[in-house]
Design a protein around this nucleic acid. Structure first.
Lengths: 188, 188
DNA sequence: GCCTATGAATAAGA
DNA sequence: TCTTATTCATAGGC
């Protein structure tokens, strides 16, 4: 029985407490919506949120084997054989080692790119061209490339792990410094 | 005036046409929700969708100056003078430089953490044996021992690793909207 | 695309 | 947190 009228538009919420409450409520709504969407269709979703306190959260639809999930979440049937558990744990470790190697490569690559980029920016005097070219075009490309890069890594890992149809879901999560982009786009 | 009952659960939609219709409807709903969330609070959202035909779409809330926004979305008044454009360019560049700095810091942090982790794994010689050896080659006692050892380490890893590499075990605590739980996490 | 009946999300209040 | 009144998204028709 609301005594105060329900909030009207989509204006910024001034009150701190109310704002953060709304943030959490709506975040879970958003996650649920994303989850439902990918359940109803085949779509995959990856999502990163940064709240006002610079804290991040992410959501992504997984492709992990249900059996593995069950093990990992502790729902494994009690009679399940120990070797199954070993497998899971070992996979985790192999996975992690592999990830670490991959991370190294990726970081070096990104660092190089960033250095080039910084230099470019500092050198550039033709700024207008930059704006047009960068934001309109490159963001879409970067987005696409980044996603595919992640997918590729995921694929490689999958190839190494015969009975694990896919990576643990969090691998598909995008890095937090994902380029900001024009608000909405579709590509290839 | 629905003649057919409304769809019940969140089961996969078999019918192709219906499925893609639902995809588009819900995608726009998702985008709207994300947009509202970031309007109501300060949150930033980045989202990438991959539909079943391997096409991508993305949504993100840019944290740009409103002027920049207008400019990027093509809404800039035609008569807007050069100084406006310059302002746009500068803000944009500042944004990106800031991003790059942030990236640098994050990468250093990650690199450090990775090195520690790699060392930890490599130093544990028994562990190495387990990881690189075959499960089938170990006897029951070894297996058991290993399981407990690895479980302990897994726990430690979860306690110490940053979000992007934590073991999926924590999925257990998350709401399951899905037979296989979506990965949802918060970090930093 | 647009229109409604219906169910789901959520803002306040407790 | 939970509850409930209300708004909002959306499934099904066109």
């Amino acid at each position: 029985m609301p005594r105060k009228a329900r909030r009207s538009g989509v204006k910024f919420i001034e009150d701190e407490g109310n704002r953060s409450l709304t943030f959490f409520k709506r975040r879970s709504g958003l996650f649920k919506a994303a989850s439902d969407l990918s359940a109803l269709t085949i779509a995959r979703v990856v999502m990163v949120l940064e709240c006002e306190n610079e804290r991040f959260s992410s959501f992504s639809t997984p492709k992990a084997d249900p059996i593995v999930d069950a093990f990992l979440s502790g729902d494994a049937p009690p009679e399940s054989d120990t070797t199954e558990k070993q497998k899971v744990v070992i996979i985790n470790l192999q996975n992690e080692l592999f990830q670490l190697e991959k991370d190294k490569v990726m970081e070096d690559k990104r660092k190089k790119e960033n250095m080039l980029r910084t230099k470019e920016i500092q050198e550039t005097s033709r700024m207008a061209k930059y704006v047009y070219g960068k934001v309109e075009d490159l963001d879409a490309t970067e987005l696409n490339e980044m996603y595919h890069e992640l997918s590729r890594i995921e694929q490689e890992i999958n190839d190494r792990l015969p009975w694990w149809r896919s990576m643990p879901s969090n691998v598909a999560t995008l890095p937090k410094y994902f380029p900001y982009a024009p608000s909405q786009m579709s590509f290839q």
